[in-house]
Design a protein around this nucleic acid. Sequence first.
RNA 1: GGGGAAGUGGCGAAAUGGCAGACGCGCAUGCCUUAGGAGCAUGUGUCUUAACAGACGUGUGGGUUCGAAUCCCACCUUCCCCACCA
Length: 830
Amino acid sequence: MTNIASRTERNAAVKYSPADIEAKWQGRWAADQLYKAEDSVPGKENWYALTMFPYPSGDVHIGHWFAYTPADAHARFMRMQGYNVMHPQGFDSFGLPAENAAISRNIDPREWTIANMDNMRRQFNLMGASYDWSRELATCLPDYYRWNQFFFLKFFEKDIAYRKNGAANWCPKDQTTLANEQVKDGACERCGTTVVRREMPQWFFRITDYADELLEMDSIDWPEKIKVMQRNWIGRSTGVTIGFDVSEYVEAGDADKIQTFTTRIDTVYGVTFVVLAPEHPLAETLTQPGQKAEVDAYIENARKQSEIERTSTEREKTGVHTGAFATNPLNGEKVPVLIGDYVLATYGTGAVMGVPAHDQRDFIFAKKFGLSIRVVVAPDGWSGEALAEAYIAPGTQVNSAEFDGLPSQEGMQKIADKIEANGWGSRTVTYHLRDWLISRQRYWGTPIPILYCDNCGTVPVPEQDLPVLLPENVEFTPTGQSPLTLDDDFVNTTCPNCDGAAKRETDTMDTFVDSSWYHLRFTSPGLMEEPFDSERVKQWVPVHQYMGGAEHAVMHLLYSRFFNKALRDIGFVEFDEPYARLFNQGTLTRDHMKISKRANPLNPEPIVERFGTDTLRCYLMFLGPWDQGGDWSDQAINGISRWLHRVWDLTLRDTTDPTQSDPKAERELERMSHVTTGRVVTDMKQFKFNTTIAALMEYTNDLSRIADSNGVSRETWTSAIERLLLHLAPLAPHIAEELWQQTGHRYSVHLQSTPDWDEAKATSDTETIVVQINGKVREQLQLPAGVSEDAALEAAMASEKVQRYTDGSEIIKKIFVPGRLMNIVVRPGR
RNA sequence: GGGGAAGUGGCGAAAUGGCAGACGCGCAUGCCUUAGGAGCAUGUGUCUUAACAGACGUGUGGGUUCGAAUCCCACCUUCCCCACCA
């Protein structure tokens, strides 16, 4: 028998020391390419586990750990569930931070980015993630971005990409245009600077052509929250476009109607004015000589204001008369035309019919400018009095000619019918979604492969000339125009059509173009002839499980869906959606505050040094449900550290005495083992890492108790420990591998399968039946499993505690829930 | 203004119609130890009680049900997204 002293000595010698084992196994796994995914493995289904790839900012911070290590645990779990798993990683490596860092340090963004990627690859390895690094990609390399250019040319050919002059969102700090999705509360999503509008020719992708299809999300298993955000962003609304005649003010042949869009055509008889956005093309045409000075000043002023100022709801409404009048086709009335900046040029038709009685904004505007207010949809019991505010709800049509007396919902249809029958307008669908503006006036991005030739106009770069390389040694300090403009060697070229002089497009692409299809490239790393191999894409995509933050709901996730559909329509892929399932992790906070480098830094490396990677991984997963984020505590990580130490000691402890095996203990351990596996498997599938770990902690506690009591055979004990290690492997891969080896198993624990689970073995021989009297718990009985109602009732009535509440009372009702409870409803006797 | 998520011990949380607080942190008491950023054991929702035991308890107020943290209605609070969207 092992005596206490020698056991202590032995344990001391093999104390759990993460630093000693983690680097060792990381090296071994890498050397063996343990996580390299084959394109297909007989008898195994493919599982593409993808996390949103990082921007190479230079450091892998704790937020990356929170996003990536649970995702890795899930991928590892799926591998042990029998799938052929691909879990790639790469770098979203074009973009502004590199350029800004390069400017402030006076170095090349390429060097900065490459150095960061090297550093981050090393730090990623500290996480012990099961990445298949053989598939690594970086979007800033010509091997990758040439395919952005390739797709751009295909899109251009099919008119999915087009160039248009117009007002664009401009960030004065970053000195570039921004897509609508990148403007938050009127400010640049990246730097927070207030965005202004600027007229310039820009390249767009026709995402609006796909608006209706993008609304269709039944086939994808995504969080409802993201679907709702996308739906709101696309912002489909149905209504009627109707023209107000202004022909007396325009030259013959020009547009002679102000087109307005409304969702409330039932109120059209209440129109008392028409308002144009300051940017509306008719604004200047319609302005009468007497109003010119005032209108010009107003438009000029509106142009100077930022979006944030213009769209503030707090702000008082402003406007100016044009002096012109427009005719309402329904009643022939002439109503004044005004210009007001509460009308947005970018939504609907850029002009609205003013119905002050039934729209609060129009109401305020009318009050201010003394315009008349006419009720045409009457609230219940309305008897002609003036309104204190706009009446928005449905009601009964009044002052609406032949439609008087109709419920307004019905009026809406009938009026629309009349308008269409007379050719005054038509039912229309409008979207909040705008086409995707992809031009950026910055250096560190994919050059747009277009030439401008004096003779031939806009000419696409021939495919065989790709890639259009991003030149080196360019002066890229932002000046408001694209840095590439300054590089004469880059700009000046010859036209492939006429051999005449041509100039290159100098804008680069939005980096969201890069991330729109990277998941396809991971299937075909290093392929030179094509962006990806169609056969391999078919094997892996749609991505089975995509994981990442919700901040990309209406940017990356929407763009990528669009890109997929566009690729489908030009014949590159066959499926409709890029990501079949999506999981959004929440945000990690510390003391309920956002973790920032300045205020409350939390660097993973010192934590790894002190506790080990496995402890940090498990702690991040133990904080709470992954989708709800988590709050970091410096203290609580000790709990995980203690647990892993206990697992270590327990596994290596010489514990069993074969002469003392007790059948009851054997059976109980078997039951606990199967219960644990059941919990782990269901919870891991659902990303419920916190309860998975709780289940394993309970199992560890149970095993400790059994070890102390020396009650099971060596075989039973060994297989219980095996089970613990197999469940631990996805969560804490290093300690699991080390203990797997030390307990005499063959490398590698990560190539094993999830242990079997038998529900029958997980059931207990006895069960606890709770006895309630009138819904209150009064007794707990240990009864044989599967006890019948009658037997349970008999046992309950035999209990003194129960009798105390039932004696002298009339039993009205009994509810028996097998395996759970017996509720006895009594009426007290008198 | 519109949409969404959430509210449970001192803290992170569990339980999604059936024993509220699993698991962990923290705290308390004890043990061990040449003492550590250790380890082990026991306890730890609130109130009443010497104790046995009992009452109360999942943001607030109602409801459905034998039974509600969980379902329904109204309200309060917090967070997130969108927003002069016609």
